[in-house]
């Protein structure tokens, strides 16, 4: 196990370096001049003297290898700052990473509870009205783009609710406030819960559908396997067959998906974060990309990639717990 973990961490570090290099090269391949963007070139042409000063200030006139090393050092040490706003990136990470994690954790809870239970119910009541309804429902939800879903939710629970004087408890804020109202860093206060519900639902929507469909399929496969038939033949109670023999086997691919999806939710919740104004990592990277803010793009992307890699590692380790046939550390 230890060898496996060390090898995977080494592999993750190489992936991070590769990712850094690709992002760095792509940044310099962009057609726009970063100095011009930083100098405020969007609405007018900044004078050449200003562009020159910006170029010098941010060392954009250094050779590419020099800039590569400088930015790599800043990224590794989290010592850089935004070109545009001069926020130290370590502060950005301190404030934004917890927000991304909170949103991802709550979205994942929705994904796990709603997705797995819907999948299990569908599988147990195969071809029933409930199964058909959940199949249709999940198909509809997964077909609605995140933007539209978010807009509709806000319009109904925010604008419509206000204009039709719904009671206070039935109304939800249009925009989120993620920085206040947390107990132990992760449990929302009642007020924060109102801000959290909609982004968490939207972020979880597509993944929940996938988990439900995946659970249903793997449950049906597992239910038809020899060991489940044997368990039933031995006279085990149905609940025990379901939990110990069917569900445990069926969950292996589901756990894989959820683990990877968690990493994705932390770093790639760009649309949800943007629409609801949730101050996480994803929306910040997106903004930085549009502003040629290289230090932000590089450092936050590396954080996201590292989380993604660690989530993958945890999934691999969890295989061994769920399925004793899997041995980590390589074959002899």
């Amino acid at each position: 196990m230890t060898t496996f973990v060390i090898r995977r961490i080494g592999s993750l570090l190489l992936t991070l370096l590769g990712g850094y290099t690709v992002l760095f090269i792509l940044f310099f391949a962009l057609p726009s001049d970063p100095a011009e963007v930083i100098a405020g070139g969007n609405g007018k042409n900044p004078p050449a003297a200003v562009i020159e000063n910006v170029t010098k200030k941010y060392h954009l006139d250094d050779s590419i290898p020099e800039q590569y090393v400088r930015r790599l050092w800043d990224t590794v040490t989290l010592g850089g700052e935004s070109f545009q706003t001069h926020e130290p990136l370590v502060e950005t990470i301190k404030t934004r990473l917890p927000n991304s994690l909170r949103l991802a954790v709550w979205a994942m809870l929705i994904e796990v509870t709603v997705g797995i239970s819907t999948g299990v119910l569908s599988a147990r009541r195969r071809n029933s009205l409930l199964d058909t309804a959940s199949t249709l429902g999940t198909a509809v939800v997964s077909a609605i783009p995140v933007f539209v879903l978010a807009y509709l939710l806000r319009q109904v629970t925010g604008v419509y609710a206000f204009q039709h004087q719904w009671p206070e408890w039935a109304r939800f804020p249009v925009l989120s406030e993620a920085n206040h109202g947390w107990y132990l860093g992760i449990i929302p206060s009642l007020d924060q819960l109102k801000h959290l519900v909609q982004p968490a639902l939207v972020l979880a929507s597509v993944s929940t559908v996938i988990v439900a469909r995946l659970t249903r399929t793997t449950m049906l496969e597992a239910a038809g396997s020899d060991h489940v038939r044997t368990a039933r033949a031995k006279g085990l109670r149905e609940r025990r067959v379901l939990t110990r023999h069917t569900l445990r086997n069926a969950l292996i691919p589901v756990v894989t998906f959820i683990g990877i999806d968690f990493g994705t939710m932390v770093g790639f919740a760009i649309l949800t974060e943007t629409v609801f104004g949730w101050p996480g990592l994803g929306s910040r990277v997106a903004r930085a990309a549009s502003q040629s803010d290289l230090p932000v793009v590089l450092t936050l992307s590396m954080v996201v990639m590292a989380i993604y890699g660690v989530a993958n590692l945890i999934v691999d380790i969890s295989y061994a717990k769920l399925d004793p046939r899997i041995r980590l550390g390589g074959a002899k």
Binding site: G18, T274, A289, Y308
Partner: peptide, 28 residues
């Protein structure tokens, strides 16, 4: 004084997703 560009940054969002996804290699 420059007035800001208004609206959502969809191209930038998609571009960033693509960049990071490419870097991660196996991301959705």
């Amino acid at each position: 004084m420059v007035r800001k560009r208004r609206g959502l940054y969809i191209p930038a969002l998609l571009f960033t997703v693509a960049l990071i996804a490419a870097a991660c290699g196996d991301s959705k």
